[in-house]
Simulated scan of single mutants.
Amino acid sequence: MSIHDAMLQACAAVQIEPPRKAKAGEWVACPVVGKGRSNGAGRVLIFDDGRGGIAWNWSSGQQQRFKLDGLAGPGEVKPPRRDPEAERIDQERRQAAVRASAAMVAACEPLAHPYLERKGFPDEIGNVLDDPARLIPSGEFFDGMRYQVSQMAGPFLVIPGRIAKQVVTVQLIDAEGAKLNMKAAPMKGAAHRLATGRETWVAEGYATALSVRAALRLLGRSATVLSAFSAANVAKVAEGLSGSIIAADHDKPLEQLHGKGTGEFYAAKSGRVWTMPPALGDFNDMHQEHGLRAVAVHLREVRGG
């Protein structure tokens, strides 16, 4: 078996699309199955020696090792031996990514954006940046991200992810809706707040959170609404907020998640009150297809615990 064939098996096991090109020693972004080509929540790494690697579904939190003779064992990747030098390098990259994220947010202008218009919010003002590539950290490790940004269609909507009020990461959304997260930045527990109120709702995507916010306002309900970027992180954020409610995506059921979609699986696992649209898709999809009133009617009976 080739390393490519083993990689294909591992990608299938964690429900991510295999990358078109994989370079040894470098994480490569790829889409999660069923989320569209613009979704980049999958990652694949082939080790430097070309004899093994890891497939990672960042949205579901699943990881699968592989080697030349196939999968290297089910489930989570075993933690590697502690390498102080590698940890130092990772820390430096993480700090550089955090600084770059804050710099991007500071450089933005408050403007309308084509993505917001396409998602049903033509009058919404977002953080917009024409050229985020100039603020991506220098060095070979970040070259792939700079190249990805160069292939995307500006201007960019910049969604900050904050932990305890500090910007630690960003998600870039281009004019065509393609998304890219800041490489090496800490995402676990980070979220973007769209509104403040008595209730607390946590959604995955930015457009989904906008639709939830608009539907709750239509109902006259005061709510804090957060976008937490991924299904696993939605649960992480919600778990830290007493009485919070999860507005989950209705994703395609997966065998390895016991027949549940990613959004449903993590929402149920969180122990929080949660809801999702009746049909496949997110609440922005429901908003676009059936109107905001349909979303409001669906959310009307949901109350936090």
Score class of each variant (00 low, 15 high):
120 G>V: 09
160 P>M: 09
110 P>G: 05
2 S>T: 15
218 L>V: 01
294 A>Q: 05
60 S>H: 08
143 D>P: 05
267 A>I: 00
113 H>P: 09
180 L>E: 07
239 E>L: 06
290 H>Q: 15
137 P>W: 04
246 I>K: 09
131 D>T: 12
179 K>P: 03
200 T>R: 09
6 A>P: 03
91 Q>L: 14
58 W>G: 03
152 M>A: 11
205 G>N: 05
193 R>K: 14
125 I>V: 15
208 T>L: 01
73 G>T: 10
291 G>L: 11
277 P>D: 09
296 A>Y: 01
107 A>I: 04
167 V>I: 15
131 D>Y: 09
286 M>Y: 13
209 A>M: 07
99 R>T: 09
226 L>P: 03
258 H>S: 13
164 A>N: 13
279 A>P: 01
13 A>C: 12
273 V>E: 12
273 V>R: 14
92 E>W: 02
259 G>K: 11
76 E>V: 10
152 M>G: 08
184 A>V: 02
237 V>W: 00
155 P>W: 01
212 V>Y: 02
150 S>N: 11
141 F>Q: 10
238 A>I: 07
1 M>S: 13
38 S>W: 02
237 V>F: 04
86 A>K: 14
286 M>Q: 10
222 S>H: 12
208 T>R: 01
108 C>G: 04
179 K>T: 01
253 P>G: 08
286 M>K: 00
97 A>R: 08
154 G>C: 08
49 D>E: 13
71 L>D: 02
14 V>Y: 06
98 V>E: 15
